[in-house]
Nucleic acid binder design. Structure first.
Length: 179
DNA sequence: GCCAACGTTGGC
DNA sequence: GCCAACGTTGGC
């Protein structure tokens, strides 16, 4: 990666100390053709393996910064109504993406091997559907103007969401977080 | 289908 | 390490 990340650095790992680590929040894009929020709710365990990420920055978010339980804005992309369609949560640590070893997969990576995997992913669990919160509406709220998703030219499929952005989105969705 | 933005690749 | 070519993303 050539330039310093424009995103806040990951919080320190919670290895040695007993501090409670703030829950972090993410926006994860998926094409509803692959796994819409409705499909996610019907899957066994209501959990999907987030395979197919082939961008180092997105991979590094999963590998270095995500923790089980982190909140996820479930975003439908490349579809008639792009936008947030539900809430989810991180359900596993990052682990090797099996599709990189599968020559028949569109995500096959000939430079990867089980001994030296390049691509990782987490599992993501359904939390709830929400109303559709589309791009135009997201852009219309000044408190969301800084969202990584809304940056011109943004293409990252996984972006961090600040606590303030998370709370603002939930307020727009009329969702009250459990205590 | 268009196209702007951006990441990756590979020759030099 | 530069940088042009190419591929991909994703809203429109």
């Amino acid at each position: 990666m050539a330039s310093p990340s424009p995103f806040p650095s990951p919080l320190p790992c919670d290895g040695d100390d007993d501090r409670v680590v703030e829950p972090r929040h993410w926006l994860m894009k998926i094409e509803p053709d692959e796994c819409s929020i409705d499909e996610l709710a019907r899957l066994p365990g209501q959990t999907v393996a987030w395979t197919g990420v082939r961008n180092y920055q997105a991979r590094n978010f999963m590998r270095d910064a995500m923790r089980i339980g982190d909140g996820v804005l479930y975003y439908h992309s490349s579809c008639p109504e792009p936008g947030i369609a539900g809430l989810a949560e991180v359900a596993s640590p990052a682990y090797p993406d099996a599709t990189q070893f599968d020559a028949a997969s569109p995500y096959f990576d000939p430079k990867a091997s089980p001994a030296a995997p390049r691509w990782l992913h987490v599992d993501v669990r359904f939390v709830r559907r929400t109303r559709q919160l589309g791009l135009a509406e997201l852009r219309s709220h000044p408190e969301l103007a800084g969202m990584a998703l809304l940056r011109p030219g943004n293409r990252l499929s996984i972006t961090p969401v600040t606590l303030a952005e998370w709370q603002a989105v939930l307020a727009l969705l009329g969702v009250t977080e459990p205590a």
